[in-house]
Design a protein around this nucleic acid. Structure first.
Ligand code: MN
Ligand code: MN
Ligand code: ZN
Ligand code: ZN
Lengths: 160, 160
DNA sequence: TGCAAATATGTAATGATTACTAAGAAGGAA
DNA sequence: TTCCTTCTTAGTAATCATTACATATTTGCA
């Protein structure tokens, strides 16, 4: 059973943005994805039941969500494409350089890390990005992306 | 007085790559930069005393250094451009979304963080990326990029 | 010195993202 | 409900960092 996050639509409303079926669908898709999707990936998913959807709209919605701080950007996972972060809890991200999926890893040390950053620069931290790159098990379900040491992908290149 | 790192040229030699004046100059430039430069930035710096240098050569050399693991990629600092990491010690990076420079921040918690990652996925971590975004003081010397809470840039957008 | 393989350069291509604009929809006022 | 203003969408074109390619040059070694 898949948990589901909430709050993206609410965040848009609170920030005074209008609600459209496109935005609702994109937020809905985002809230059920745990692989840190790209714009293209979200586009394909939502377009399936919203054939008129434009890729531009996806980019615009993501940009809006970024600006209000509802999501953040994790950058590339070896595919030169931006992956988006919906999980606002401090955590570690594990990116697979072969299948280009990113999984969350709970961490206790990350709290201390953020404390160090706060201490160093004050309270104006806008966002953070903690990603480690490796090779995961190849599994179809993002939730099973366990990054188990056994039987990884063959090789990968670390480029942005 | 500015410290200077060493080892990039040696790393290339050990990996069996040929040495050229271009590569030497690019490695030299990299080892004296503490702002996590971009390809374009390195190009401009080295081109000043190497007028025949090509931007492609800079990209190729950076890619080679990435492949042998001598440097890593930190991704964008709000400028949609790849910034490179020369400091191989585990540390936190502070990126300024206005001047797009990245400074190092020593951290003790980062050790625990990496231990968690190792534990979770084994020893095959290829590289890591720990970056926090904010606004720094505007100062010309990268080493003085202190991210002091007082008098920051006005505003910044968090996009990749 | 001579040669094969690696590298540098200049240019063209790629591709993700952004800019632009006309058409369409949301939401408040009447 | 209807109207109107403003925001949003969708389609297309433009941007620009990065990569691919083809040639000329250089390196490292015999
Ligand atoms: Mn995450
Ligand atoms: Mn650094
Ligand atoms: Zn994988
Ligand atoms: Zn700054």
């Amino acid at each position: 059973m898949v948990k589901k996050r909430a709050g993206l639509v609410e965040a848009l409303k609170e920030a005074g943005f209008r609600m459209t079926p496109q935005r609702t669908a994109i937020c809905e898709a985002l809230s059920t994805r745990f692989d840190h999707p790209t714009a293209q990936s979200l586009y394909e998913q939502v377009k399936a039941e919203y054939s008129s959807l434009s890729l531009t709209t996806v980019y615009q919605t993501l940009d809006t969500l970024l600006r209000i701080g509802a999501i953040t950007s994790l950058g590339s996972a070896g595919d030169d494409t931006i992956h988006f972060e919906v999980n606002t809890d401090p955590h570690i991200n594990l990116a697979c350089l072969t299948c280009h999926r990113i999984c969350d890893l709970n961490s206790t040390a990350i709290k201390a890390l953020e404390a160090e950053v706060q201490q160093a620069i004050g309270s104006k931290v806008l966002s953070g990005r903690v990603v480690y790159y490796s090779e995961c098990l190849e599994q179809s379900d993002p939730l099973d992306c366990q990054f188990n040491p056994a039987s990884r992908h063959k090789e990968g290149r670390v480029d942005e």
